[in-house]
């Protein structure tokens, strides 16, 4: 019910002007005074009418949003949409079960959020330039790369970071680390007690978060774990890595994905001081 003192036709025209966006300052002030406690229902109805007309006049074709803008919008979304699958409490609880983790918990959680945000941005950016992920046959089969890993670890510029629980940790703790050399563009993941996957149903995929390069995580390769105990998997970075900030493991459909929704992100290794 409208309680305005203005004649209906006059306030309705002002509301129409507001919906169009053509009110001048004095008209807007007048409208605000008349409806100090809130606009009447007809205001929303006129706005819907203007929106519908705008849609009608726009036709079916829109210009595509620029990719960089889409990425920024997706990054923002993480801040404003509560994650229904959030499991940060699980990360904290599980942290005690990661004896090799050397990064302070608070920092690790912050990195987790940052890395997840970047991954999410990548996922929602959804550049579909490539027709699909890696083919199932391209998956790296986990095997003994222990000697090569040891050699790499002997180099001066290598980094070694421990795995910590991601946003959706495994039911049982998984230990291990990532050894990476930016100079050699080579690295290995080591997992202890990583669940064996069924490659016909799902595969693991590594993502390398490298803000020095871009906000887009780099696809680090799809792989399977076929044996219990310790397994070592070579990293298969699809792009040159400049300064990795974190490594994240997601579980994806067979063949992996170009765009990860991060619904399952069990492990994260953050490179932090």
């Amino acid at each position: 019910m409208n309680s305005s003192s203005l004649p209906p036709s006059e306030w309705e025209e002002l509301l129409a002007g507001e919906a169009i966006g053509d009110l001048d300052t004095s008209e807007l002030e007048r409208l605000d005074q008349e409806f100090a406690s809130g606009r009447p229902d007809s205001s929303a109805e006129l706005m819907r009418t203007a929106a519908a007309l705008d849609l009608a006049l726009a036709g079916a074709e829109d210009d595509a949003m620029p990719d960089h803008l889409r990425r920024r919008v997706a990054l923002d979304a993480v801040k404003y949409i509560p994650d229904a699958n959030s499991n940060s409490a699980g990360v904290e609880l599980a942290s005690d079960q990661q004896p090799h983790a050397t990064i302070p918990l608070r920092e690790r959680v912050a990195w987790l959020a940052a890395a997840a945000s970047i991954l999410f941005a990548f996922g929602t950016w959804a550049l579909r330039e490539r027709s699909g992920g890696n083919g199932p046959g391209d998956a790296i089969v986990a095997m003994d790369f222990g000697k090569e890993r040891a050699n790499l670890k002997a180099t001066e510029d290598h980094i070694a970071v421990q795995w910590a629980p991601g946003t959706t940790p495994f039911e049982t703790p998984v230990a291990g680390d990532v050894v990476w050399s930016t100079t050699e563009q080579k690295g290995f993941m080591r997992f202890v007690d990583m669940p064996i996957n069924d490659p016909t149903k799902e595969q693991y995929q590594l993502w390398i978060i490298d803000p020095a390069r871009d906000d887009e995580p780099i696809d680090g390769g799809v792989f399977d774990v076929t044996a219990a105990g310790e397994v070592i998997v070579p990293i298969d970075a699809k792009l040159k890595v400049l300064d990795p900030a974190a490594f994240a493991i997601t579980i994806e459909k067979p063949g992996g994905v170009v765009v990860s929704t991060q619904e399952r992100l069990p492990l994260l290794a953050s490179v932090a001081n």
């Binding site: 997706a74 979304a77 993480v78 949409i81 509560p82 229904a84 699958n85 999410f120 929602t124 929704t261």
Partner: peptide, 10 residues
């Protein structure tokens, strides 16, 4: 809270 919908929304 389904963040995967962001992609669809965009």
């Amino acid at each position: 809270g389904d963040r995967t919908a962001v992609d669809d929304c965009l």
